[in-house]
Amino acid sequence: MFKEKIVVRAVDDVNFTVMKGETFALVGESGCGKSTTGRAILRLTEPTDGEVIFNGTNLALLPYEKMRSLRKHMQMVFQDPYASLNPKKSIRQILMEPLKVHSKFDKKESLQKVISILQIVGLSEYHLDRYPHEFSGGQRQRIGIARAMILQPDFIIADEPVSALDVSVQSQVINLMLELQKEFGLTYLFISHDLSVIQHMTDRVAVMYLGKIVEIAKTEDLFNNPKHPYTQALLSAVPITHPKEKKERIILKGDVPSPANPPSGCTFHPRCPFAMEICKSELPDQARFEEGHTVNCHLYSQNKEEINYAISHS
């Protein structure tokens, strides 16, 4: 007797556009599909369906060789700088490798390029023949950024690039990334669960829950006027910045459902303080507000009387 095959939709019906030169953020709880989305865009994880359009080209349809040649235009900074660097290779070898793969420069030019990019990220030629274990966490992340930058890509996906670093080092790496963006005209997809970092360095934010995007807005709009109940709960958890600041914490009931067995209808409804009957059976349509602010929630697609009733009985 065979068990029925379980299908897990780690990322489901996700749709967003990253504008050239901006920093677009993906936020949400651990396990919501942020990293999978980033890896699927670069085809480090092969998507089972859908399209990924980069400069007019659908990456999902490209054969291996063409996809490989495009990788010089899109790179990734990984969450754990130690795990993403080969411990058996020196920094010279690690940074030389992308240049060899894409045959951009001869050996002398490649070395000059490696030294130049190390200086840009705050290291020096002195570090070339050291190995990853000889560096601090912040220095290793600088090397990861240097590796992503060395081919002068147009687009960088930064997957939790500062979460493994001490707070004092986080600000240095964030400021470095902002300086590089300004100098080279980079476009970032910034994946994080740290909302204070998101508020500091991004232009627009998409909020994910259980593999779906529930809200997209400009960063300022999202922090000043969050509309989805999940977004409101996330923002209420941001630590206060002053002892006299008062904030009401929204505690969500229950745990995040299993992606292998997601709830019917709106996947957030078992934890939502404003859940209505329709939330249990139907997926919400996307409601649009000013300046590209979109929300997937039945609260904004039902009539006002029903909304008021739901809120008053929560």
Score class of each variant (00 low, 15 high):
K107M: 10
S103H: 15
H228E: 11
S168L: 04
K100Y: 12
D13V: 01
R147A: 06
D194K: 05
G211T: 02
V18F: 04
A60L: 11
I157E: 05
P239G: 07
V167N: 00
R9H: 15
E46N: 06
I311C: 06
G33K: 10
V214T: 02
L59Q: 07
N175P: 05
S168K: 00
G144L: 02
S84K: 04
E306T: 05
D203K: 01
I143W: 03
T267Y: 14
R9Q: 15
A164P: 01
H269F: 02
G254H: 06
D159L: 00
I250G: 07
S136P: 06
C279R: 04
L234G: 07
S136H: 04
Q112M: 12
K66N: 14
T23W: 12
R43S: 10
P273R: 03
S35D: 12
S258M: 08
T219L: 01
F223I: 01
H313T: 15
T202N: 06
L99K: 07
L26E: 14
A237D: 10
I53P: 09
V8D: 11
R271L: 01
Y230N: 09
G292D: 08
E46M: 05
G265M: 11
I174Q: 08
L62R: 13
I6W: 08
L195D: 13
C279F: 06
F223T: 07
S196W: 10
G28D: 12
E29Q: 11
C272S: 00
N175Q: 09
M208P: 01
A60R: 14
F2V: 14
S236A: 06
I216L: 03
L26R: 09
S110Q: 13
S163L: 06
L118I: 06
N261A: 14
A275M: 08
Y131N: 03
R39W: 12
S301I: 01
F274A: 04
K304F: 09
T187H: 07
L95Q: 08
V11I: 08
Q112R: 12
P132N: 05
Y131P: 01
T48P: 00
P63E: 13
E97A: 08
K89R: 14
V173L: 04
R130C: 10
K107H: 12
G138Q: 03
F184L: 14
D13M: 02
N225S: 13
K113M: 08
F289G: 03
I157V: 10
T17K: 12
G254L: 14
T267V: 12
M149D: 02
L189R: 04
K108Q: 14
E134D: 05
Q232D: 07
P161V: 00
V18W: 09
N261K: 14
I216C: 01
L151T: 11
T57C: 13
N261V: 10
A25C: 13
I251F: 14
D13F: 01
V207L: 02
K3M: 15
D255Y: 12
Q152E: 15
P239C: 05
T57W: 09
P87I: 06
K227G: 07
E245P: 05
I91M: 09
F184I: 09
P161R: 02
A40Y: 11
T37G: 13
T37N: 11
H269C: 03
E290T: 08
M19P: 03
L234Q: 03
D49I: 00
C32M: 11
L165A: 04
V11A: 06
P229C: 07
V52R: 03
S168M: 03
K304R: 07
R9P: 09
V114Q: 02
S69E: 15
V238L: 05
